[in-house]
Design a protein around this nucleic acid. Structure first.
Lengths: 169, 169
DNA sequence: GGGTGGCTTGAAACTCGTTCTCAACCCCAG
DNA sequence: CTGGGGTTGAGAACGAGTTTCAAGCCACCC
């Protein structure tokens, strides 16, 4: 478990968080800063468990209720995106300066690769229109096997939709 | 709640189920037939609760463990597709003769509209390729507000990804 | 038709992610 | 510094889904 390099615009996001809290007259507690900072400085799609582990490593104790509450806050502030890759729990990702992106998920190792597609952006708006929907948001997740895992022996995938390989339930 | 017209190829699917059970030397119990039949004759994306309600209406008592086990069986048999629209529980849909399709989900009333897109089918394969992934399956869900709900007063949507309006948690 | 073996069933206990409760606590404006 | 309102944390609660295990049923045999 190596520590990944800090997210490019982490400082910006932290500043954005402080501003949001100020604007909404919400107290900026140590716990909230620790959680936001942990998330903003990560390159990964973190689960609540991941976040708790990071805080534990930093010897910062935060109750899980607070982790969930703060994540909720961050999502509502528009600084964090919430994802459900069908593992039975959610993952969180700082909303970077980059535009909206989709995900490629490896069924063997759980790796998540992000990509963007102008054409898909245009198409989803078109499709919503066609059916009389006012588009709000969408989700495109492609599940497959990444190039590294294709090399490894006998990657047998059962027919099991919405179920990456990393689940522990 | 009016009863929707039966799915076009329900009889076919029931026959497929019988065949699968025979081929795999699995006993065809009353419970399994009742669950499969309920699902195959529905036009909706049913939750486990929905299925239990249908069976209750038919005065067929089936334990929920059996419902889950049978759904698992149907999914593995390839006769049913499993979906997660981010409501906190799964929905099930008979796999009809139609090709793979995507979903438009109304955030206000929970209605699900299906659609297909040749271009998206082609594009997702292309994208997987581009990133060295062997494509397995994918999911495209577009969330928005349907035309009927757009008319209704004050449909205020909080910024809350993966969360249709029908949840009861 | 009756027997028999193995798979299935159902009720309840359990798991696990997430939310709620509430008394103690902290942030910050005054 | 002080007070009050929002926040925190431990644990209880919740809800979807799974497991357990004794009792029951299906299907095949005679």
């Amino acid at each position: 478990m190596t520590s990944p390099p800090p997210k490019l615009d982490a400082a910006e996001l932290v500043e954005g968080f402080r501003g949001y809290m100020r604007d909404h007259n919400l107290p900026l507690t140590h716990q909230r800063e620790a959680i936001a900072s942990a998330l903003f400085h990560s390159e990964e799609h973190l689960s609540v468990e991941d976040i708790e582990a990071i805080l534990r490593d930093e010897n910062v104790h935060v109750g899980k209720a607070t982790v969930y509450r703060t994540l909720d806050l961050l999502v509502r502030a528009g600084l964090v995106d919430e994802h459900d890759f069908g593992e039975g729990f959610k993952r969180f990702e700082p909303r970077s300066a980059r535009s909206h992106h989709e995900h490629l998920i490896c069924l063997a190792c759980g790796k998540v690769v992000e990509f963007t597609s102008e054409r898909i952006e245009r198409m989803k708006a078109l499709i919503a229109d066609e059916h009389g929907f006012r588009h709000h948001h969408h989700r495109l997740d492609i599940y497959g096997v990444c190039s590294e895992c294709q090399g490894r022996a006998a990657v047998t995938l059962e027919r099991s939709p919405d179920r990456p390989g990393g689940g522990s339930r």
